Computed example of a mutant assay.
Amino acid sequence: MSVISAIFVVLITILMPPAGVFAISGCSVDFFVNICLTLLGYLPGHIHAFYLEYVYYDRKEQNRLGRFAARPAPGVYSDRIQSGGQGYGTIVEDPLVQSEEGRAGATGQ
């Protein structure tokens, strides 16, 4: 399903770059930056849109494999793109932190 959605977003981006960015980031700063770049020139809008899509789908794949990016991607302002679409509505605590809290409680500290 992810491959089909990626192809669909790329096709939308070829026709109109801000629409492709809106599909992955929603109404965010990246969307408005892309509108400005597209108005300045069609090519800068395309470059920016494809870069955001690359970061989004790369982070999404990394999350699927259980690896998380250590640093935010440069020039990306949307948390949705930075996280690969993960993290909305849930907060998952680090298992290491949970086990340390459990040990501290068990030893009476």
Rank of each mutant, 00 (worst) to 15 (best):
H48D: 09
G75C: 03
L96Q: 13
L65M: 15
S78P: 00
V10W: 09
L65Y: 12
F22P: 02
G75M: 10
E93L: 13
G84Y: 04
I91R: 11
I4W: 10
G66Q: 09
G41Q: 09
V9S: 01
F22M: 08
C27E: 09
V76F: 00
R59E: 04
A19T: 08
G20H: 06
P72E: 09
Q82D: 01
V10P: 01
L39N: 06
N34P: 02
E100F: 12
G105N: 13
F22D: 02
I24E: 02
F50R: 03
G20D: 08
G85Y: 01
I14M: 10
R71W: 11
R80G: 01
I91P: 00
P72V: 02
A69M: 10
V33M: 10
V76T: 00
S83W: 04
Y54N: 07
N34S: 08
Q82A: 02
V9M: 03
F68L: 12
P44W: 06
G108H: 10
A23C: 07
P74F: 07
A73L: 05
V92Y: 04
S78V: 04
V9C: 05
Q98F: 06
G87L: 06
Y57A: 00
P95Y: 04
G108I: 07
L39K: 07
P74D: 12
Y57N: 06
R71Y: 12
E101C: 06
D58M: 10
A69S: 15
Q62S: 15
G102Q: 14
L65C: 09
V76S: 01
Q62E: 14
V9G: 00
I91H: 10
L96A: 14
G26V: 03
L52A: 03
F31V: 00
R80I: 05
V9Q: 07
G108L: 14
S83R: 15
P17C: 03
I35L: 09
S25I: 03
S2N: 12
L37M: 12
V55E: 02
A70Y: 09
T90I: 13
Y57S: 04
A69H: 08
L15G: 12
A70I: 11
L15Q: 07
E100W: 11
V29C: 02
A69E: 13
E100I: 09
I35Q: 00
S25T: 09
I4K: 14
G20L: 06
I81W: 02
P44V: 05
G26E: 07
V21D: 00
A49D: 05
Y77E: 07
C36D: 08
L43M: 13
I12F: 05
S78Y: 02
R80C: 00
A49I: 03
D94M: 05
Q98R: 13
M16N: 09
Q86G: 01
K60M: 12
T107I: 15
Y54I: 01
R80Y: 05
Y57W: 15
Q62H: 13
G87I: 06
P74Q: 13
G102E: 12
A6E: 13
A104I: 11
Q62I: 04
D79P: 01
T13P: 01
S78Q: 04
G66D: 09
A106I: 07
F31T: 03
P44H: 08
N63Q: 15
I91A: 09
V92T: 14
G26T: 05
L40M: 11
G41P: 01
D58H: 15
V55D: 03
G26M: 05
R103L: 15
V55L: 02
Q86W: 11
S99R: 15
